[in-house]
Structure formats: C-alpha cells, structure tokens
C-alpha cells in the first residue's frame, strides 16, 4: 500500500497490539509450544526424569499393534451412540420449553442445571445412584417394576450404557438451549403460511421446524463428536482403572494413563496426535458433507 500511517493511527495500533498481546502470548506459550513439543516428543522415549531418547517411529508402530488403543477407541465410538439420542431428546425438550407458561424460566433453569454442575461431583453422585445394591436407580426399578437392575458400573457390558445415560442427563440441557435459540429464530410466517395451506402439527414439525434447525443439528453433531472423542473426567471417576476389563476406558483416558501413570510421555503424545488427526479428519468430512443436508438461508 505504501501509505504512511498517521501518528494517531500508529498509536492506536500500538495499543491494539498491547491489548491483544496477553491472550496471544498466552496461547503461544501455553498452547502452541506444548503442542509443537508434543510432536517432537512423540518421536522419542521420555519418562520425564531423564533426557528424551530418539525413538523414530517406534511409538507410532507400537500404537498400531496395541490392543488397548483399539479397545479404548471402540469404547469411545460406542459412547457416541449417546449423540443422536441426546439430539432427539434435547430438541423435543426445546420444543416443549419454547412456549409461554408461568414457571417456564424455572423449568429451563432446571434442565440447564446439570450443565453447570461440576462433572466430578456429578459423577460421584451417579456412582451412588447406580450402585447395584443400594443405589437409587435399582431400588426404583425393583419397587416400581419388580425388575432387578443390573450392576451398572460393575459389569463390562453395562458400563458404557451407564456412561451414555449419565452423558445424556448432563448434556441435554446445553443442547436444549441451542435448540431454543434455533427455534426462536424461525420466523412465525412459515407456520402461518403452512396453517393456511392446511398443515397439521406433524407436518409443521417435520417440514418446517426440523429442516430449519439443521444448522443447530450440524453444530450439535460436530461438537458432540469432538466432545465424545475427548471424554475423560467421568471415566476417571466412574470407571476406576478403566472399568471392569477396560470396558470404560476412552482414548483420552488411555493417553492419561500412559502420560501420568506409566510416564511414557512419548507414547502418550503419539496416541494423542493420532487422536487429534482423527478428530480433524472426521470434522473435515462432516463439514464437507454438511452442504448436502444443512439448510442455510
């Protein structure tokens, strides 16, 4: 451009950089540097005590033959079953909450409460609710339906469904708010026009509401999958040592174990990078597919 900046403008810019600097520096120092370092370390063996030793591709090779990587990956993907269920439920909930009656904000607050509850405390509560012998859930099942409930967190085949259940309870509220926002941005003219054409409630839902909510669906799916790939805290509390027969361990939990229990930082970094790339690819595919089904006006 070549035009010289005036003194005032230059001073403005200086201030701009000054104000922008803290978060940017923060990211560079505590975000980018560790990320780059983890690439470096993923090609090494490092126990955090002695100097890293060059290992070439050994970590990545080990990873391909490590059955626990596959097992934890399977568990992680299994947990994603919760995403579509959660979407349906939170959308229905949002539609219910999208009317005007007294106490509506109270109701909305109740459903949003799990989202802001600390995950560790919530997990501990669930541990108690799901206890086989004296847990609330099994007592309820027994007294109301006469069903002897399973050992939710103790049987390999029940651990993941339990985790999905907990995930639904704590995740629905957040998605409900997103759907609410989506619902409220749908212009009422669509519904009025449809009514004139003789559309019933079902048609209004399937032909207007759901299609016009596709940007929200898209956002929820993308965030849900990323979140599922990263799930850790509940597992850490609810599935001690990965749960019975490692049935509850997710990939991030496995990374954590290698990093902070076995102190195989190199290996943990390698798995983390594979996971990171996987998330990236999956998200990319979702974006590519999105223009086929997401309605943008």
């Amino acid at each position: 451009m070549g035009t010289k900046l005036g003194g005032y403008r230059r001073r403005e810019l200086a201030w701009l950089y000054l104000f922008v600097a803290p978060p940017v520096l923060g990211f560079l120092l505590f975000g980018l540097v560790p990320i780059l370092f983890s690439i470096y370390i993923s090609f090494h063996k490092w126990d955090m005590l002695s100097d890293p030793q060059w290992a070439g591709l050994a970590n990545y090779k080990d990873l391909l033959g490590d059955e626990k990587v596959y097992k934890s990956m399977y568990n992680t993907i299994y947990l994603m079953i919760g995403i579509p269920i959660g979407m349906v439920l939170s959308m229905l909930l949002a539609i219910l909450m999208n009317r005007k009656f007294t106490g509506i904000s109270f109701m909305r607050t109740i459903y949003y409460l799990p989202v802001i509850s600390p995950i560790i405390a919530v997990s501990l509560l669930w541990q108690w609710i799901l206890n086989q012998d004296y847990g609330l859930l099994n007592n309820f099942l027994w007294e109301t339906f006469g069903i002897a409930g399973p050992n939710w967190l103790g049987k390999p085949e029940w651990v993941k469904p339990s985790l999905i259940l907990i995930g639904l309870w704590s995740g629905i509220g957040g998605n409900m708010v997103l759907y609410l926002a989506g619902l409220q941005s749908i212009s009422s003219t669509y519904y009025e026009a449809a009514e004139i054409d003789g559309a019933g409630a079902w048609h209004k839902l399937t032909r207007i509401t759901i299609p016009l909510l596709t940007p929200i669906h898209f956002f929820v799916v993308v965030m849900g999958i990323i979140g599922a790939f990263q799930s850790f805290s509940q597992i850490y509390v609810l599935a001690v040592d990965g749960g019975p027969e490692y049935s509850g361990a997710t990939v991030v939990y496995y990374i954590f174990q290698h990093a902070f229990q076995y102190f195989n930082m190199g290996y943990a970094s390698a798995v983390a990078w594979v996971l990171g790339i996987l998330i990236f690819v999956v998200t990319l595919i979702q974006f590519k597919l999105s223009n086929r089904w997401v309605y943008q006006d």
Partner: peptide, 8 residues
C-alpha cells in the same frame, strides 16, 4: 462375588 464386592 465381584458384584457383591462392588456393592459393598
């Protein structure tokens, strides 16, 4: 058994 152990 394991289940009983987990419960108590």
């Amino acid at each position: 058994n394991q289940e009983a152990e987990q419960a108590m």
